[in-house]
């Protein structure tokens, strides 16, 4: 019984992702890289930084959720990643309350 519960507890961690799925994600990542390079060649003006960061964020989400197994882990990890990410966003946005209004 004890052992059974134990293995269940780690059941989420032992989720096996198929090679095909990983490769699909990789193809997606490479295509997104191509997109961001292509877009940078166009004259997007001030939107260039926004599109570049959006694409980078999508790529990061893919890496986090599949490569780093966040999708298959306990929900707690997702909250934690969210906490860490928003901490950084808070730091940078509060800093800009100074710089954007100089």
């Amino acid at each position: 019984m004890d052992q059974h519960e134990h293995s269940q507890e780690h059941g989420e961690g032992t989720h096996i992702v198929s090679y095909a799925r990983y490769i699909m994600i990789w193809i997606g990542l490479v295509m997104l890289t191509g997109t961001t390079v292509a877009l940078s060649g166009m004259d997007l003006g001030r939107w260039i930084i926004l599109t570049a960061l959006t694409i980078a964020s999508i790529k990061t989400t893919l890496v986090l959720s599949i490569f780093m197994h966040l999708k298959f882990e306990d929900k707690m990890y997702r909250y934690f990643v969210l906490i860490a990410g928003s901490t950084f966003l808070i730091f940078i946005s509060l800093t800009f309350f100074d710089y954007a209004f100089r």
């Binding site: 901490t87 808070i90 730091f91 509060l94 309350f97 100074d98 710089y99 954007a100 209004f101 100089r102």
Partner: peptide, 22 residues
């Protein structure tokens, strides 16, 4: 407590908006 750091810097030349917010 993680959102208030710039109150150490009110006299260094920050923007007014920054000062109000912090």
């Amino acid at each position: 407590g993680s959102l208030v750091w710039a109150h150490h810097m009110f006299t260094v030349g920050m923007s007014n908006t920054g000062m109000f917010v912090f």
